[in-house]
Nucleic acid binder design. Structure first.
Lengths: 338, 338
DNA sequence: AGCCAAGGCGCGTTGAAGAAT
DNA sequence: TATTCTTCAACGCGCCTTGGC
């Protein structure tokens, strides 16, 4: 219940008037720094409480030259980003930084999302899966620390930091798992031009070559969603001989595959093995129970936050690119071929 | 590339100096209001462009008494909230309001989320599924317009606006669909104390009574996740006779049920029918193909934004509670009992 | 001397009022 | 009299200097 006399938001001056002290003293008390006596301190806090005073974060920021604000651009449509955001909060707040979120959605492009963060005086930007041209990101990085998470950029061509999963290694471990089970006819359903897709394709090719399966390399066009996986599965159905294993671009794509196989009476993993990527909630659902490559989300967030904070505080930035190791999670959709 | 001489962010004064005019005039030009000649206008814009000037949103807010900021509290763990947030952006920006996001996560409770929004000078709060005590929400609503989305509150006991789906009606339509198919032994797996759970329980009971099935009413404790659904399913397995249909609290809970049934060799919908709630991506996945009750997400967001803006602008607020109709989506998990 | 508190200034912006064409 | 532009003060807060007991 606000007791502000004039209907406006109470300010330091209102508290000061009520407590019978100067605004400077109220400021001291509110920030909890030394410079006020215990009795006065208590009186000021009581007055603030009574009129419902809250410090104005924007005015405070205006005054100090540092804003201690980390801007985060993320997409509402990607559940993966939500997990990353959670990690950013966890890493930023203990380090004394606040997080400002700016979402990308159908009605709100990346440009607007970033503009909002800059107008808010963020000191650094953490971009999840940015689609903007590399040149645009480089331009931003001239103005303030910028880190791209999950989108790879050519190193040393700009100041943009990169934090990403070792996508190639992830797919490689998936292929190796399948080879160890005895598979040879292993197909990759790719992610087109999605972030990480080309690395995953490369990891697939590398692993196949390394195991003497160069002649069996086969990449089918796929995408990020269940529909893409389903379409690829239909193509596979018409293939003879059918491959014995599939490595999908991500879990959603893999689930699309599983669905078509299930409906077509093709048993997984008995007749065909399927591997996903991400270890999303989807994969963990018991009746999906998907073998997949897990990304280390806490470490990705932490590295991104660590990178920009190091830049802000002038600490030496160890490497411009941080590559986080993925981890194969074997569940029920892979088995030895018949 | 910033040409700011001193390394700091360029301000109005920097632009003014470069263009040889006063800061007030630069302000006029940047806002695009009238009061500047065409030639000067062009010169100022060019100067701003050259030094990479951007208006400082915080300083601007400090000066003006309105902030035009709508604060949104949402949970990163609920995909449903992401969809709602997208709708909020779409509704707020055309109306001339900016959106400030504040997430609730494991490491960040509602109190902190709301505090951040208030410190940022938000003029109104849109809370998605708030768990805070009603008294706390009422207290907030004394200070600024507040709307609770998807959490019901006793009307007229506080100034908190409510926007929600007609949960009872949704479950009622689910039960009616099952009754029409010939089911009588219909169980409800509830959501405990989750938002909407008590209404859904009530809708279930009402519908059962209305169809003369009062003796068959049976509510099992459930929850919001797949695990809760799975646990309830295991309880059902030991029940004799087993019910012929289940109405779950939400889609995730329903998927947990489906999973256990699948593994136990109980055919859905042949041996048992299952209905969810939300029409999430999960439900739409072809191999889940869940019959469910859809919430009208765009309308929920729009109503929430409309409500707080009406309050802010002193327009008459038609009703304190806006109830949005749900819609039954019949898919493949319901059929006539054997 | 040593603690406490007050006063003034500046942060980047805008609105009002007035000066110059 | 219009138009274009400038000067001045204020927004809410934090730091620094000064003054009082």
């Amino acid at each position: 219940m606000s007791t502000a006399s004039n209907g406006k938001r109470p300010t330091l001056a209102d508290v000061a008037a009520r407590a019978g002290v100067s605004t400077a003293l109220v400021s001291i008390v509110m920030r909890g720094v030394k410079g006020a006596g215990d009795a006065t301190r208590e009186r000021v806090l009581k007055a603030a409480q009574e009129i419902g005073y809250r410090p104005d974060a924007r005015a405070r920021l205006l005054r100090s030259h540092r804003s201690q604000l980390l801007g985060v651009q993320f997409s509402l449509e990607q559940a993966f980003h939500s997990d990353l955001v959670e990690g950013v909060y966890a890493a930023a707040e203990p380090a004394g930084y606040q997080v400002v979120l700016s979402a990308v959605a159908a009605s709100r492009g990346e440009q607007r999302a970033v503009d909002a963060l800059l107008a808010d005086r963020c000191e650094a930007l953490i971009l999840f899966g940015p689609q903007a041209p590399a040149a645009r990101l480089a331009e931003l990085a001239e103005q303030l620390p910028v880190v791209s998470v999950a989108r790879r950029l050519r190193p040393s061509t700009s100041r943009v930091g990169v934090v990403r999963t070792a996508d190639d290694e992830g797919v490689r471990s998936a292929v190796e798992h399948l080879v160890a089970l005895g598979h040879r006819e292993i197909v990759h359903i790719d992610g087109g031009k999605a972030p990480g897709a080309s690395d995953r394709r490369r990891g697939y090719r590398t692993a196949m070559n390394r195991h003497g399966l160069a002649d069996h390399v086969r990449v089918l066009p796929g995408g990020l969603t269940e529909e893409h996986g389903a379409a690829a599965a239909r193509t596979l159905l018409d293939t003879h001989p059918r491959p014995s294993a599939v490595v999908a671009f991500n879990d959603r794509c893999a689930v699309g595959l599983l669905d078509v196989f299930l409906r077509s009476g093709i048993a997984v993993p008995d007749e065909i093995s399927v591997v996903g990527f991400d270890d999303s909630h989807l994969a963990r659902m018991a009746h999906v129970n998907l073998t997949t490559v897990a990304q280390d989300i806490p470490r990705l967030s932490e590295s991104a936050v660590g990178h920009v904070i190091a830049r802000l505080e002038g600490k030496p930035v160890d490497e411009k690119e941080t590559v986080v190791a993925p981890r194969l999670v074997v569940r029920g959709t892979t088995a030895a071929p018949r």
